[in-house]
């Protein structure tokens, strides 16, 4: 199966490890990965700030680029950015040139863990990690993309990984794109509460499927000098993999029958 990787600007600029881990996991499950050259950014920074005109060009470019590879699916390591890709369908519905393309893009775009769980049917990626961890649920992935199950199922199956629930998991970490820079005073109180919640779980690792949230929460951890390890879910699922452990939804269903 051919997969176009939607790398996202954050991963392109800052986090090579996240992109690598995702690629390696996808390849392990037989995906033939491509990285469309001209992709840049989903357009959220300007769109969410109200610069709709300026954003149009960004959206057009992203669509042209991601569709330039004839892939079955488009997979990205960030729930928020994937939700944005899917929303093009709505925001460009009156665009004579791009409406159709935007719809096509939306239909085949998935967030990484969502793709593993919903499309490939994976429940156990074969990973092992001996640690106590907690998971930060990103708002956009949960509410706009509507994916609140996949990462939890996949993490629950990682061998030796002890997941502890994060209190007030429903609350935003205070990132909010440009909000974090435009309203730092409010953003700070939000991220501080999130850091405190994470600390209260006594987890050694904080995991998420949205690198931008991790950049925010991790950045505050670092500034406060509090100890934590930050991992993207792709890195976790790429840890100490034994392919013999890999399990699919259909395997479990068989057992349950």
């Amino acid at each position: 199966m051919k997969v176009a990787i939607f790398s996202t600007c954050v991963v392109d600029l800052f986090f090579p490890k996240v992109g690598q881990a995702m690629t390696e996991v996808l390849e392990r499950f037989g995906c033939d990965c491509y990285l469309p050259e001209n992709q840049i950014c989903c357009g959220q920074p300007t769109y969410n700030s109200g610069y709709l005109k300026e954003t149009d060009k960004t959206l057009h470019n992203e669509i042209d680029s991601l569709l330039s590879v004839d892939a079955d699916y488009i997979v990205g390591p960030a729930g928020s950015c994937v939700a944005m890709l899917r929303s093009y369908k709505n925001s460009l519905k009156d665009d004579p040139e791009y409406a159709q393309k935007a719809a096509e893009l939306a239909d085949k775009s998935y967030e990484f863990s969502q793709f593993l769980y919903r499309v490939l049917g994976v429940v156990d990626a074969g990973a092992q990690l001996d640690a106590k961890a907690t998971y930060h649920r990103s708002c956009h992935m949960t509410r706009l993309l509507g994916e609140a199950t996949a990462p939890f199922v996949l993490l629950d199956h990682v061998k030796d990984l002890e997941m502890t629930p994060l209190p007030n998991i429903q609350n935003c970490c205070g990132f909010g794109g440009t909000f974090s820079a435009k309203e730092p005073e409010i953003s700070q109180t939000m991220v501080d509460e999130k850091v405190d919640s994470v600390l209260s779980t006594k987890a050694e690792i904080l995991i998420s499927a949205d690198p931008a949230c991790l950049m925010n929460i991790g950045g505050r951890f670092s500034r406060r000098g509090e100890k934590i390890k930050i991992m993207h879910i792709a890195e976790v699922l790429n840890s100490n993999v034994d392919v013999k452990r890999i399990k699919y939804k259909k395997d479990i269903e068989k057992v349950e029958q």
Partner: peptide
């Protein structure tokens, strides 16, 4: 800045 980001993220 936002306009610049708009330009930057629209051009490969």
């Amino acid at each position: 800045i936002m306009k610049t980001i708009g330009v930057g993220t629209g051009s490969p």
